[in-house]
Each structure stands twice: as structure tokens, then as C-alpha cells.
Nucleic acid binder design. Structure first.
Length: 257
DNA sequence: GCCGTAACAATCTGCCGGCC
DNA sequence: GGCCGGCAGATTGTTACGGC
């Protein structure tokens, strides 16, 4: 008798193999490799599987047949950096690979540069280039023995140099590691954005259309972020000006406005 | 090395017959 | 009718092996 579990459909191994169309040994292999969760054990040789197991197996087979991904990569995809996305949403995300920003990559305005060329052209130090690469902000492409930095990395380097020119100098303590703050926040932002985006569009539009929207909306959102960033700086200044007038302990914005 | 597949022993399940 | 034991088949996890 399957364990009572609200409305979740429980299956025996035989049912699961029939539904998923893969042999038992394969399912055991996936469990062993951590690709799918362990079953709900009823006894030493009795276990129950849910629809989650079935969906995971179907997704694995789809990613293998359509995307030719190895199981190691599929595992990472299915972990989903927090595992909050549904099978369909993950599938959409994987389908988008190579379709978004492909036009920009095909016709770069700037020719890829080596680290030395990048340093010479923009003025950024070789040390900063290495730190940015270690942080995962710079993503050079290996071409033979050469490591080339693309348009995004060149633009970023130009911005770094401009920031120094306007006064955010290393001498004042503005180390390039400062960029890590932005990177971490942006990663969290994109994580959340992806969830909302995928939840609203998965199954409603073709992958090509989703990629088209994503590509078109990114510069718009970037502008909006720039505006919000500027406004937030103004708000922060105003808040401290206002709250510093009050006597007593120092104002703490973390405690709320 | 990756991705399964096959074989094995241990254990469970379901059926049947015997007994009370 | 209900309980118990025996048996065959089903199912399990583990491990060694094979194809590409």
C-alpha cells in the first residue's frame, strides 16, 4: 500500500519505468549520481516514486536527446542554483542557450583583445584584468594559446578606467574588488528576474519569441536600473540628512525607513 | 571517462493450502 | 472466516562489466 501523501501520485519502480520509458538500472544510476531524488523508502526493498521523479527523468532524456548535454551538465542545470524552477521552466532556460544576444555576439563592434592589448588600449592594469577574471566578471575566450577579451570586457575596462579618472582611485581605497558588490547583487537580481520571467512566459510563447523579448528588454531594464540606482543614491542621502537631525544614536538605515 | 546494463543475493509480496 | 507457514515470483541495492 503506497504511503498516504495528500494528492501526490505515488508509483512503484515498475510503474515509473513504464511511464518514463527507461530501464530500472538507468533510474538507479540517476539516483546514485544525484540527478533525481531518492525514493520514499517503505522498507528495505520497497520504495515509492512521485511524479517529480518521472518529470526529472523525462527532462534528463529531453536534454540528452535535444541538447546533447552530458549528465554532469544536466545535473548542474537541474540544481538550478536553488532548485526553485519547475521542470518546464528549466527546459525553457536551457532552450534559450545560444539564442539570446546572439546577434550582438555575431557582429561585435570591437575586435577581441589579449590582456596586454586590453591594458594598452583602455588603460586598465593587468592586475585588475586578472582580478576581474578571477571574480568571473571578465570572461575571455581561449583561441589556441591566446586568451581574448570580448566587447563586454573591453567596455567594462573602459568604465573602470573612467571611474578612476573621475576620482574613484585605488589610492583612496577604491580597489577593483569593489565590483564584487555589484556582481553579487546583480546575480541575485537576475536569479529573481529569471524566476518571474520563466514563470510568466514558459509554455505561452515560442522559445524564439522569448529570446527576442529578452534581448529587446535587457537594455530597457538596464536603463531603468540606472535610473533607480541614481534615485536610490539620492534617497539615501536625503534619508541620512533627515535622520541625522534627530538627537541620540546614529541613524541605521538597515532598521527601516 | 561517461553512460548505462547485467548479474547477484537479500528481502518483500501475493497466493495457496492446511489448521483451528 | 481468520490465522499461519510455505513457496514462487517480484523488487530492491550493490557491484562488476561493456560499448562508445
Amino acid at each position: 500500500m503506497p504511503p498516504k501523501k495528500s494528492n501526490i501520485k505515488m508509483m512503484r519502480m515498475k510503474e515509473l519505468t513504464a511511464a518514463a520509458g527507461v530501464p530500472r538500472g538507468t533510474i538507479q544510476f540517476y539516483i546514485k549520481e544525484g540527478l533525481i531524488p531518492k525514493p520514499i523508502k517503505q522498507s528495505a526493498n520497497s520504495a515509492f516514486y512521485t511524479e517529480e521523479h518521472l518529470n526529472d527523468i523525462l527532462l534528463i532524456k529531453e536534454l540528452q536527446s535535444k541538447r546533447f548535454l552530458p549528465l554532469s551538465v544536466i545535473k548542474e542545470v537541474m540544481m538550478g542554483g536553488g532548485g526553485k524552477l519547475s521542470v518546464n521552466e528549466i527546459s525553457t532556460l536551457v532552450e534559450l542557450d545560444g539564442k539570446v544576444f546572439s546577434n550582438i555576439e555575431e557582429i561585435p563592434e570591437l575586435k577581441p583583445l589579449t590582456a596586454k592589448q586590453l591594458s594598452k588600449q583602455t588603460g586598465i592594469s593587468l592586475e585588475d584584468i586578472k582580478i576581474l577574471e578571477d571574480m568571473g566578471i571578465f570572461t575571455p575566450i581561449k583561441k589556441g594559446t591566446k586568451k581574448l577579451y570580448g566587447e563586454d570586457d573591453i567596455r567594462f575596462a573602459e568604465c573602470r578606467v573612467k571611474a578612476i579618472q573621475v576620482g574613484l582611485t585605488p589610492g583612496l581605497g577604491f580597489h577593483i574588488g569593489f565590483a564584487k558588490i555589484h556582481k553579487e547583487f546583480i546575480r541575485k537580481l537576475v536569479d529573481e528576474e529569471s524566476k518571474v520571467f520563466l514563470r510568466l512566459l514558459t509554455g505561452k510563447l515560442e522559445i524564439e519569441k522569448i529570446a527576442e523579448i529578452l534581448e529587446a528588454v535587457t537594455p530597457i531594464i538596464n536603463t531603468m536600473l540606472g535610473i533607480m540606482h541614481k534615485k536610490e543614491i539620492e534617497n539615501t542621502i536625503k534619508w541620512y540628512v533627515l535622520n541625522s537631525k534627530a538627537e541620540g544614536e546614529l541613524p541605521d538605515r538597515e532598521k527601516g525607513e
